[in-house]
Amino acid sequence: METAINPWWIIGGVLFAVLNTAAGLIWVERRMLALWQDRYGPNRAGPFGLLIVLADSIKMFFKEDWIPPFADRLVFVFAPAIVVATVLMSFTIIPVAPGVVVADFNIGLLLFLAFSSLGAYSIMLGGWASNNKYALLGAMRGAAQMITYEVFMGLSLMGVVLLSGSFNLTDIVLAQQDGWFIVPQFIGFFIFLVAGLAETHRLPFDIPESESELVAGFHTEYSGMKFGMFFIGEYMGVTLISALVTTLYFGGWLGPDFLPPIFWFLAKTFAFICLFILLRASLPRPRYDQLVEYGWKFLLPLALVNLLVTGAIRLMQ
């Protein structure tokens, strides 16, 4: 099973796939949203409007790259890089197919939690360094949201760790050969999905951004490719959470034998990306205190009960 592939090929392949997926999601999201809202979406540039990705990228690169004179220059430039770097680092632990993983760590899942909590700095620092009241409000909401979801995100993952007995994602996938963890860990899956939505700041929980109240939230002052980094970071985050949900609860690369394992992984991940877009198309944004209350008063006790019951069942076996 452990085929000797040159690790540089794996690193290059993962980087290539992730960056292109993130760019391609610009088109996928706009077309899907349009489909669900009964319109056409971008359909002029190239076949099916696919070249909109190219047009958007060119637009972003050629916009004026402006740093406001009142901003904290160093932190302002540094903040967008954090989100991209941390999300890309998180992709190192995800096993795409048997033996195809960048870093086979025995603390893989903890590493993901560490990078996701470091990724929150980009929003907070970006908002703070902009020296703008809307950006600061967005950043503070982002910080409060992050403190809320981090706790139950970690707890919801512990059910999977208990069942598989390992933090290593390859072991977790292999432990699902008799049945995917979605069946015994449905509550954990639900909590992780909500936490993942909050972590990527996607639409039901895009409270730091909430463009209807805060202009554009934490990235109000950003333009050009610096804004583009936040944008791409969000899409990469969606891809990351989808890949993690696939790996943790839906058996990763496992699937019927007539297709190669990597196909099953990619197909499941793509299905969850579509779920993220569907959620954006269908759900309204809750108020910021509602999310915090929902997190602490409902999801955290639920995650604790889930952990308790899973532990009890595991002990009895």
Partner: peptide, 28 residues
């Protein structure tokens, strides 16, 4: 000590420092 390394990132760099930054933002 990979476990302690991960905890150092999650607890200190992640959680506690985020709280500190949050408070400093509030105090402006």
């Amino acid at each position: 000590a990979p476990f302690i390394a991960a905890l150092e990132l999650i607890v200190y760099a992640g959680a506690i420092m985020v709280l500190m930054v949050f408070v400093i933002m509030m105090l402006n």
